[in-house]
Each structure stands twice: as C-alpha cells, then as structure tokens.
Design a protein around this nucleic acid. Structure first.
Lengths: 165, 165
DNA sequence: CAGTATCCGGTCTGATACTG
DNA sequence: CAGTATCAGACCGGATACTG
C-alpha cells in the first residue's frame, strides 16, 4: 500500500527541523482556528470570540502567543471620530500561512468534504480555478515518481551522529 | 500593513468548513509530529516513540485516532523467518498530507529557519528545485492581486443566516 | 470593547511498571 | 516489540464577574 520506503529515523533531527518548530507555534487547535479566521479578514478580539465561541482566557492567551511569535501584531487604531480600538492583523509572516492553509483546505475538501469545496480560489482576470501544486523552477508540475529529497550535508551528519547518542 | 479587508465574520461557517474540520483530526502537536515522521517513512511504534520521545500512552492514543480517521492503517506483517510485527503505514489519505506539509516547511524555512532549508525537494530527472505554489489550470503561477475567493452559494446563504441566529 | 481575575472540575500528560 | 495499567499533577476549558 504505502510506497514510502521504511525508515527507522527521520532524515532530519527534530531540533533541526523547521517543520517541527512550526508545530510549536501553530500546532494547536485554537491557534489554527484563530489563524483561519484571521486569514479571512477577522481582526478584532470580540469578533474572534463570537465566531469561534472560544473562552476569553484562551483567546487572550493564544493571541498573545501569536504576537510574541511575530505572526500577528497588536495595534491600536482609531476610525474617524470613534474612540480607539484594538486590532490583531496578520504580519507578513502570518500572511505567509495562506498557502499552507490553502493546501490543507484542498486536502480537506477531497478527503473530509467528499470532494465538495465550500470555498474555491479563482483568477480574477481569467476566471480559472486555482490550486496548490508542487512545481519546478519553470512552473511545471512535478511528477510524483520524479521527486527526490535533498538533505543538507551538515544536517544529515548531525542526524547520523544524533542517532548514535 | 495588512491588505486583507476587515471582516466581522468568516465567509464560511466553522461547521461547513473542511479546513476547520481537518484541525480536529490533525490539529495537535503530537499528531503533527507523528505525521511528519510517517511522511519520512517511519512506521513502527517503537521508532516513533524513540524518535519523538513521546510517552507510550500518548503515542498509543494518537495512533489509534489516526487509524480511526483513516489517515493511518494498522497492519501486521511478517518478514522472512521473522516473527510478526505491527506497522502503521499512511493510507492514501495520509499520503495526501505531503503537499500541505511541504507548504508548511517552505513557510517555516523562510520565517523560522532564516531562509535555511535542511531538506529541499528536487526533480530527479532535471535536478531542478521544486516548490509549492498556487497555479491555474495551465499551471501558471497566480499573481497575488489576481486571486479571488468564490463561496459556494448555498454555503454563503447558510453563513448569512447563521450570522443572525 | 478588550481584556484581566478567579475558580473549579475534568482531561490530558508524562512517568513508571507490567504483559504477551 | 507493541502495547496496557495506573496514577499524581499540571494544564485547560468554560463560567462568571469585574475593569478601564
């Protein structure tokens, strides 16, 4: 069934792995839900709370962590004649999560939504449907069998050594 | 800073959203780490445990959930002359997570790893570097400003109604 | 509106020991 | 090797009240 070759250990140690590091920052159910809303454009404490039905203490805690990690920003702003308000916009780092989230959405639409997509992406100019894909430098789709992992030499050595200790 | 337009509510209700559903299944730090290892080729209980240093009870629990959700499979197998063993290979659904994980890796390499990538993907045949991107049907990269959300009409109506109740 | 403070009950974590 | 059993304690969720 699985065509992934059996390995006893990952080729990259967990502490060298940026993917693993990212889980510490965004690998939590509430955090992921907050980011989902944020990517759609929600920015205010009370809006997050109402939409997600998350306890205030949890929301407060998660927003603080996201700000500390540089994914969101806490900003005071003032609309014409209104009193000051707080908003939590995504930083550029946070906005960069759009592509990963789209990739997950694509996966989820296929496997959890029975192929049905509540939300799809389209090109404004051509109307074509957009999708997430693995492409080469000339933007040609990669064939599954043609993909190869390349491990940074220094990192691979560390993993080898780490294996023995 | 943020060019995402302010919204009071997400355009898709949480219960209609496959992205949100996926968080219930894979939105947990241990589960994500297990999947990371699995995508590299780790398949055995003891190997996951040793590599991640995860408590047995937690690992047992997470593997069971992943199997129940159809992401992994529990399989008994037997090598020549050896005694029976158990392995947890990814199902096709689980293997489908490779693309989302690559997208997160790309994000993490840029923002958490200072642009340094321990592991990159390459085309075996052409040697070109591979990356995750948003493309149209003819596999042309989408311009950021040219992207548009399309919400399924029925879903949008439900969200409208949900907003008032 | 955007939080902080407090509290309690429950679940999950992680450690350790045990089993077929 | 691949788990189950047990258990104390940390942590989390949810409720409610309060503040500037």
């Amino acid at each position: 069934m699985s065509d992934i070759p059996l390995l006893r250990r990952s080729p990259v140690l967990r502490r060298d792995c940026n993917l693993a590091k990212s889980f510490e920052r965004i690998g939590d159910c509430w955090t992921l839900l907050i980011l989902r809303s944020a990517l759609y454009g929600v920015r205010r404490f009370e809006d997050f709370r109402a939409e997600l039905d998350v306890p205030r203490s949890v929301l407060s805690n998660r927003l603080a962590a996201l700000v500390a990690n540089g994914i969101m920003e806490r900003r005071e702003y003032r609309e014409e004649g209104q009193r000051a308000r707080i908003e939590y916009p995504l930083t550029r780092m946070g906005q960069g999560l759009a592509l990963p989230f789209m990739a997950i959405t694509q996966w989820a639409d296929k496997w959890l939504g029975g192929g049905h997509s509540p939300l799809t992406l389209r090109s404004k100019s051509t109307g074509q449907r957009l999708s997430v894909a693995l492409v080469d430098e000339r933007c040609r789709r990669a064939e599954k069998a043609d993909i190869e992992f390349v491990i940074d030499a220094a990192i691979a050595r560390r993993a080898e050594r780490g294996r023995r200790t």
